[in-house]
Design a protein around this nucleic acid. Structure first.
Length: 111
DNA sequence: CGATTGACGTACG
DNA sequence: TCGTACGCCAATC
């Protein structure tokens, strides 16, 4: 039985992030209705390591496109490499053209 | 069981 | 424009 808590909601949204796109913690939080719970999104990402589901957490960055969670990955450089592999340019742990690659669940999913 | 922290973001000075 | 304070909710100490 799936525990439809804040975490599962976050996981579902993150899983919907298309290839070559990125989003922010705040965007997900707002989509879930808890605009000021961006921290919880990060918390959920941290817990994503423990779950079986494949969570493309590397596609989730903070509002400025900074890879704030890079240090929390098994291999820190995996996040940057994964993003670059998807065609996203990373400079100084920051997503270039973040606005172009930004995937807003509220817009894309047309809430 | 109470206090602190945390992969963030917005508001205010 | 930059720096500091607060909120949100769950997990950890």
């Amino acid at each position: 039985m799936i525990d439809l808590g804040f975490f599962e909601l976050v996981y579902q949204v993150v899983r919907l992030i298309p290839y070559g796109r990125v989003t922010s913690y705040g965007a997900i939080a707002r989509y879930l209705g808890s605009a000021q719970s961006a921290r919880m999104v990060g918390w959920a990402m941290n817990a994503s390591h423990s779950i079986d589901t494949d969570i493309p957490a590397h596609r989730v960055v903070n509002r400025i496109g900074l890879l704030s969670g890079i240090a929390h990955f098994p291999n820190p450089k995996y996040m940057q490499e994964a993003l670059e592999k998807e065609g996203i340019k990373i400079k100084n742990n920051k997503v270039q053209d973040f606005d172009k690659h930004f995937w807003d669940p509220m817009v894309e999913l047309a809430l």
